[in-house]
Amino acid sequence: MKTPRIIVAALASVSLLTVSACVTDPNTGEQKASRTVIGTGGGAVLGGLLGGVIGGRTGRIIGAVAGGAAGGYAGYRLDQQIKELREGTAGSGVDVTETDNGQAILVNLPDGVTFATGSAQINATFRQTLDQVAASLRQYPNSIVDVYGYTDSTGSEAFNQRLSEQRAQAVSSYLTSQGVASSRIRWQGFGENPQYFKGDNNTEYGRALNRRVEIKIVPFTDADVQAARQQGQ
């Protein structure tokens, strides 16, 4: 396996606060367990560690709050943000899904419409779509945002690694330029690391799946903020 150069610190886990209740999923209309995130005074952190964020939990949360992000607030629902993101990016080729067992959001930006082949310059026609993503991040400020760059295995490993880094950085910089606090965002390029392939590099379809930038949105709560502050003391 080829190991890419890591730009920022290694992945570390983030815990989230959830409570269980029956709600209607705005994306499907089906009844399902709620993933409401409760603010100050509501519940306690349940379960163990989920997923991961670049650079670790404690410093990221503290930095995000210092940069103007809010703590978790009563009534926030991941389902609702996913619904709004899907509506705002409809027809663009962007794919919005749940990740980390339904505790975070993954926004997949396809290579062909986000960037020209071999380029790290965001296509002008795609900026309006990224504006919708930035608007969602501003509307829901209680989250950490990771931006990941990936390539297929066509070309040299060094070129692919550099391209993945440049693309992740370009998306991060664009979100910041649209008013998303830089303290919330970290980026990392994975190049052609087979661990992150989503398709078969022997086919054009598979290679297209592997060429992508992903935006991972990980909400945090007031309880997470307090825990991070205590760990940082």
Rank of each mutant, 00 (worst) to 15 (best):
L46C: 07
V14D: 02
G43R: 05
Q80C: 01
R211T: 10
A9Q: 13
Q121H: 01
T36N: 04
S177Y: 05
T36R: 08
S173N: 15
L16Q: 10
A33F: 05
R60P: 03
L49S: 15
G155F: 02
A181C: 03
I82M: 11
K32H: 02
L50S: 12
L78E: 12
D111S: 15
L163K: 06
Q231A: 14
S182G: 11
T3V: 15
A227P: 00
L163H: 06
V147P: 09
R167V: 08
Q231S: 10
N108E: 11
S182E: 10
V14T: 12
Y148Q: 05
A10W: 05
D146T: 07
R212I: 05
Y148G: 00
N210L: 05
L130C: 09
R212H: 05
E157M: 03
A158Q: 14
T176G: 07
G42T: 07
F197W: 15
T97Q: 07
V213M: 02
S183C: 01
T24K: 06
E87A: 15
M1K: 07
G39S: 13
N123M: 09
G206Y: 08
G91C: 08
G47E: 07
G191A: 11
T154D: 02
N160S: 10
V213S: 00
L85D: 01
S164R: 04
N160D: 13
I7Y: 09
D146W: 00
Y140H: 15
Q31S: 12
V145K: 02
Q103W: 04
A228V: 02
A64Q: 10
V37L: 14
I122E: 06
N101V: 14
A135K: 15
V65D: 13
A33V: 12
V133L: 15
C22D: 11
D25V: 00
G43T: 06
Y150C: 06
N160L: 06
